[in-house]
Design a protein around this nucleic acid. Structure first.
Length: 591
RNA sequence: GGGGGUGUAGCUCAGUUGGUUUAGAGCGCUAGCCUGUCACGCUAGAGGUCGCGGGUUCAAGUCCCGUCACCCUCGCCA
């Protein structure tokens, strides 16, 4: 027998068609309007809000505070004329209550449960269960759920198997800091939480599971950002007997289906592909926002003939001189330019040279170097500028020129409203550098990870310039965000051994840390490649949000704490003893 | 680890060169009134460790030093 308090409908579904029906609604008290003889109440659940009408006789001396949980039974009544609330889907009806039961009382909440909320984040996080009652968060999490469900369906259609990999696993020597878990059974030994399922999914390929995917939680003990949490979720996948084009094809179909089903957006495939070199050269960054132009232009041809010593010196010392042309229509003021220069200096530039382009000589610091006959015209031609445009130049080492101009480009795109919401410009960025030199430790590191295959390199060939070697790694980029990355893997144990040698990981260390992978690869590994998509970032971006906390039910603060449950926390001495841990630092006093 | 920002009522904020009796406002809350509101309205009321600690001063929400928390960011994130 059904308990009498159980709902027959949600708070979002009653319409005029339900008129006369006796219904039971369950929900939270959203708002109360007491008119003496008649008492209105808005009852809320995640499906909507319905107006409840109570008489004094029914209410009696029952107290109904905000966020009380109620069960109300009554008749659906159609509202007449001006009593209809057209703002809400349920506004044409109300429930005339015959019986009300308080299922649960509540203190006054520390902040109101409403959409427009400017309460400080720490208060919201401390009472996350109240924050999550708000429509915004509910919509975000519903969107995320639909997004992920849609992706799962797409991967199933593609023939992928959903296989779980361990959370308690082995520490990895490279990459991010690991979260460690002490072993009780093995004193002094530790598990690590996975930074990604990387090694396990490669081993699944060796095992013959040629199409694997998983919604995988990953853990990295590094400092947070608006788009980075210490634990995050990836749609992780790997395939055998494929190259990068097969991976791209699967993801283009998956993203097209998911954008259609979860976002109602049609996107064009295939996505454009560009090399890392091209992206850096045209946009100054490895995750270009393709919604607008303002591309970087090489000014070398002009700079090497001009009298401006800053430009000449930069080139003479092996650096670059590049610029961005800001069309006249955006009317960049001197104050704007000063602001941009401050910003440029903040990110490492020594200065920002600019020129208001005019065939007659123009204005700005560069104008006097454009005075020579033909100088202005040739510079405008080189840069693709027209009269009235403003050109911003940076002269420095290549890395700084790219970083500063890439940064300025993004800033200008935002400032001029060129990066339009609702426009989705995906792109693959390919051929990342294979290795990066680290000055501090005087050694090479993998730019992606040590299992990434190099482009065009055979073991027998001449020793390559490691800094110029490209890898078969790729990123998926959307509107200036890196959504995910992957690579074609090394499937031969001898090549893998050689990479470890370059990385300075000796035979003994190699064996201890990766021996099981090398051994697995030696037992007949198929060529394989994979990719992982950041689901937090992708969910946030497709909702137009710039902080992934808004799509995570229980996120952490910038210092990696959980304000609701109070993690991390000290534990009882017995608990430490059990896992053979002794602390050497007293914890910070908690306020 | 570095840089920047914020911290005053449950929430969001104001608070002048340090000085006006009891640190204010809006919202929320409580009580009373009100039979058609829907962010109901009207009247009244309660509510404060000015993040915390120290210092300067006749006097500190306000100035100085330290510290904590939160946010953004650089480093970091194979």
């Amino acid at each position: 027998m059904t308990a009498s308090w159980k709902r027959t409908h949600t708070c979002g579904e009653l319409r005029a068609a339900h008129a006369g029906r006796t219904v039971v609604l369950n929900g939270w008290v959203q708002a109360r309007r007491d008119h003496g003889g008649i008492y209105f109440l808005d009852l809320r659940d995640r499906y909507g809000v319905t107006q409840i009408v109570l008489s004094q006789a029914v209410l009696g001396d029952t107290k109904l505070g905000p966020e009380y949980v109620l069960s109300v039974r009554g008749k659906v009544s159609v509202r007449e004329g001006s009593n209809v609330n057209r703002e809400r889907p349920t506004g044409e009806v109300e429930v005339l209550v015959e019986h009300v039961e308080v299922l649960s009382a509540s203190p006054v909440p520390p902040f109101p449960i409403e959409e427009q909320l400017d309460t400080a984040l720490d208060t919201r996080l401390r009472y996350r269960y109240l924050d999550l009652r708000r429509g915004n968060l509910q919509r975000n999490l519903i969107h995320r759920s639909r997004f992920i469900q849609s992706m799962r369906r797409a991967f199933e259609r593609e023939g992928f198997l959903d296989i779980e990999t361990p959370i308690l696993t082995k520490a990895t020597p490279e990459g991010a800091r690991d979260y460690l878990v002490p072993s009780r059974v093995h004193p002094g030994e530790f598990y690590a939480l996975p930074q990604s399922p990387q090694i396990f999914k490669q081993i699944l390929m060796v095992a013959g599971y040629d199409k694997y995917f998983q919604v995988a939680r990953c853990f990295r003990d590094e400092d947070l950002r608006a788009d980075r949490q210490p634990e995050f979720t990836q749609l992780d996948m790997e395939m055998s007997f494929v190259d990068e084009e097969d991976i791209f094809g699967v993801w283009e179909r998956v993203m097209q289906a998911t954008m259609r089903e979860a976002c109602g957006v049609e996107i064009a495939v295939p996505f454009p592909r560009m090399s890392w070199d091209e992206s850096m050269e045209r946009f100054g960054v490895d995750k270009p926002d393709l919604r607008f132009g303002l591309e970087l232009v090489d000014a070398k041809a002009w700079a090497e003939t001009c009298e401006f010593q800053v430009f000449r010196n930069a080139l003479a010392s092996g650096g670059r001189v590049m610029g961005i042309v800001v069309p006249a229509v955006h009317a960049l003021s001197r104050k704007d330019v000063t602001g941009l220069e401050e910003h440029a200096k903040g990110v490492g530039a020594k200065g920002l040279a600019w020129w208001k382009a005019e065939k007659s000589g123009g204005a700005g610091p560069l104008a006097k170097f454009c005075a020579a006959p033909g100088a202005a015209e040739s510079l405008m031609k080189l840069m693709g500028a027209s009269d009235g445009d403003t050109i911003l130049f940076v002269a420095d080492r290549e890395a700084i020129v790219r970083k500063v101009l890439g940064d300025l480009r993004n800033q200008l795109g935002r400032k001029f409203g060129l990066a339009k919401a609702g426009e989705w410009r995906f792109t693959w960025v390919t051929s990342f550098p294979m290795f990066e030199w680290d000055e501090d430790s005087k050694r090479w590191f993998s730019a992606h990870h040590p299992f990434t295959a190099p482009v065009d390199w055979t073991l027998g060939g001449p020793s390559p310039d490691l800094g110029k070697l490209s890898s078969r790694a790729y990123d998926l980029v959307l509107n200036g965000w890196e959504l995910g990355s992957g690579s074609v893997r090394i499937h031969r144990a001898d090549v893998q051994q050689r990479i470890f040698e370059i990385l300075g990981i000796g035979p003994e260390e190699r064996q201890r840390k990766f021996g099981f992978l090398l051994e697995a690869l030696s037992f007949g590994a198929p060529p394989h490649a994979g990719f992982a998509l950041g689901l937090d970032r992708t969910s946030a971006l497709t909702l137009g949000l710039d902080n992934i906390r808004e799509v995570i039910a229980f996120p952490k603060t910038a210092s990696a704490t959980d304000l609701m449950c109070g993690a991390p926390s000290i534990v009882a001495p017995e608990q430490l003893a059990e896992v053979h841990i002794r602390t050497v630092t007293e914890p910070d006093p908690k306020p």
